[in-house]
Each structure stands twice: as C-alpha cells, then as structure tokens.
Simulated scan of single mutants.
Amino acid sequence: MLRALASNALTLLIVGLFLMGGLVVWGQSQYKAEGPLESAMCLQVRSGSNMTRVSQELEDDGAISSAMIFRMAADYTDKSQQLKAGSFLVREGASMEQIIDEITSSGASTCGSEIEYRIGVTRIQTRVRELDPATLEFVEIASFDVTDEEIPAEYGQKREEADTRYRVSVAEGVTSWQVAQGLEAIEPLTGEIAEIPAEGMLAPDSYDLAPGDDRTTVLQAMQDKQQLRINAVWESRQGDLPISSPEEMLILASIIEKETGVPNERGQVASVFVNRLEQGMKLQTDPTVIYGVTKGQGTLGRGLRRSELRRATPWNTYVIDGLPPTPIANPGLASLEAAVAPEETNFVFFVADGTGGHAFAETLQEHNRNVAKWREIEAERNSSSN
C-alpha cells in the first residue's frame, strides 16, 4: 500500500515537473515571440509608475498577450526595478523582451515631444515636434524665432511635460559668437558663458540637452567633438597640400564652408583655393572681407562696399597674401574633409551661376564671361522684382 502511494506520488511529481517545464518553455516562447501590436504606439511611463501598471496598460492597448507573463519576465530578468520614466516607442509586432529592454535601458525617451533649438547663420529657431508612431516621423506643431515676443502656447505646454526631449542643432558656417548668443537664448540651460570659444572650434551638429544643463558644458562638448574631427581629418590629408598645420586646415575649411552651401561643390571650391595658394595668388574671397567687418558678430545684412574691399584688415584676402589669421566660421566635417582632399582641377576662379551653385573657370577670360552671365541674371531678377 505504502509502496503504491509512493509510486503514485513520484509519478505525480514527475508529471508536475514536466508540466512546469512545459509552462516555462511556453512562457519563454511568449516572451520572445512577435507581439500582437498592429501599429506602433507611444507608451508613456509616468514617474512613480511600476511594472504592474505598465504591463496592464500594454495588455489593454493590445501590445502584449499577457500582463502576467510580462511581469514575471521582468522579475525573472531582474528588470522590474529598472523601469524608467519617459515616452517610449513600441514598434509594430514588438516582443515582450524588446518592450522590456526599451523601457528599462537608457531612460531616454524615444517618442513623444521634442523641442529643438536650431542656431543658424541668420536666426535662432525653436521647433516643437511630436513623433507620429504610425509614420515614425516627427510632426511640427510650432515653430518660432527665440527673439520673437510672442511664444506659441504649445511651447509652454511641452516645456511642462516631464518627458519632453530637448536638443540644440548648430548649423554649418555659424560663428562662435553666434553659437554663444544662441545658447544664452535657450531658456532651459543655466550658467553664464564667461569666454567665447575660439573661432572654428565648435562642431556643427546636433546635441542632446536636459533642463538645467550648463551652457559652458554644452560648449565644451562642441569643442571636444570638433577637436576629434580636426585630428582625424588632418591624419587623412593628402601629402602635397599648401597648408602645413591643422590650424591652417581649419581656416581653409571655414572659407570653403562660407563660400558654398552646395555639398557636391565643396571639392571644387577647395581646389580653387588650393590652386591659388600654390600659385601665389590672393584668395580674394568675400566672406573673409565680411568677417573683417563684423568680427563674426552677426551678419552684415547688406552687400560689401568698394571701400570695404580695399580696406586693409587681417582677414581681407583681397589685400593680404595667403590665408587669414583665424577661421571665419565653424566648418562642418564635409568642409574639413574637402580642405585636405580637394578635387584635382585647374580652376582658379568661380562666380555664382544663378542656381545656387557656381560657375568655375581656369582662365580670366572664361571667368569674365561667367561674371557677365551672372550680372545678366542679377539684372533680370532686379527688374522683375521692381
């Protein structure tokens, strides 16, 4: 009798273990399997929330098949206490494993609202955007100049939301003074800028911000990135260039940056200046003259006067030989690369061609024809606008 009971108990135990093992295997398959979500959604995890609430919300929204398995998996992987507050993108068909990783990893919001401060050459623009989970594209809901007196209500609303992301974008060709002015105007930042960084030493790029970040710290991040770019590009330079240091490369790159906004022209523009340097010709580039007038503090806002073209300043390349003493703006990576790897041409002249680009020439005679064409285009535009 006792032997029979023991045998039955052992059998039940074995069956139970098999069932439990099967349950674990099934649970693991559910955890890693493609989820039921038919279209991407934005999951908002509020501060103070927990895995129980989040799992139930996900189940209610049809993003997971079982809130219980989700919670058990989070506990089993020791991630229940790593839940981050923020807005997180849950993609179509995301597995429970992927969702748990998304909401417990960096804590950086991957959807929701974003405020971008763009420091450009002529203006400092604020854009308020929101990610549309259906298209995975940001939709602009407000845009304004930070110097405007009237600020859209949407900006204030998003500023009050704890999970709103912030970033600052620095355009290629802005001066260090313009960047400093832009950062001073960005309300969520703190601290005063005691010293404006050297011209050319701020990397045009996009930088994540957080309310309360110090302006000097943000500037340092820009300097660190630009220094890394300078070091890497200088190491990759061609061996027969008429520039002898990273500093000269940076100056030349800044001139290239200011002379063209057309990406595929940078190599040709670089070749013109390299050819002129090699031949002992003056660079004769208007942006350097403008920098001598403004010192990089804002834009000129008008055409250059003849007297300014003749006036001797350290940056007037119609008067001085070779490169000016400092960069005239902060060049982007592409302009740095063009400075050390110009196209191989015989061009020594270029002028606007009316399309936003330039017409290049090897001889003065050819250049004069291009200039005449450009003046005809200018005259037609002026007559049509009057």
Rank of each mutant, 00 (worst) to 15 (best):
L2W: 13
R3E: 07
N8Q: 15
G22S: 12
G27D: 02
K32E: 14
A33R: 00
E38T: 15
Q44T: 15
R46C: 07
T52I: 12
G62T: 10
S65Y: 01
M72I: 06
D78M: 13
S80N: 13
K84P: 09
F88E: 01
M96C: 04
E97R: 07
I100C: 01
I103G: 01
I103F: 06
S105E: 08
S109A: 11
S113P: 09
Y117Q: 08
R123F: 03
I124P: 02
L131S: 06
D132R: 05
A134W: 09
T135V: 02
E137W: 02
V146M: 11
E149R: 13
E150C: 09
I151T: 12
P152R: 03
A153W: 05
G156N: 14
R159D: 10
R159M: 15
A162F: 13
T164V: 05
Y166I: 00
Y166R: 07
A171S: 15
V179I: 13
Q181H: 09
Q181M: 12
A185C: 03
E187C: 07
T190L: 10
A194G: 14
I196M: 07
P197Q: 09
G200A: 00
P204C: 05
D208T: 11
D208I: 09
L209T: 11
A210G: 13
A210F: 15
R215T: 12
R215L: 12
M222T: 04
Q226F: 07
L228C: 11
V233K: 06
V233W: 08
G239N: 14
E248L: 07
S254F: 00
K258A: 02
E259S: 05
T260R: 08
V262H: 10
Q268A: 14
S271G: 06
F273S: 05
F273L: 11
P287H: 06
I290S: 09
G296F: 00
G301F: 10
R302E: 09
S307P: 04
R310N: 14
A312N: 15
N316G: 08
N316Y: 03
T317L: 08
V319C: 05
T326C: 10
P331Q: 02
G332R: 04
G332H: 03
L333P: 05
P342F: 03
E344G: 06
T345S: 01
N346W: 00
V351L: 04
A352T: 08
D353Y: 04
T355Y: 12
H367I: 04
N370V: 03
E378V: 12
A379C: 03
E380D: 12
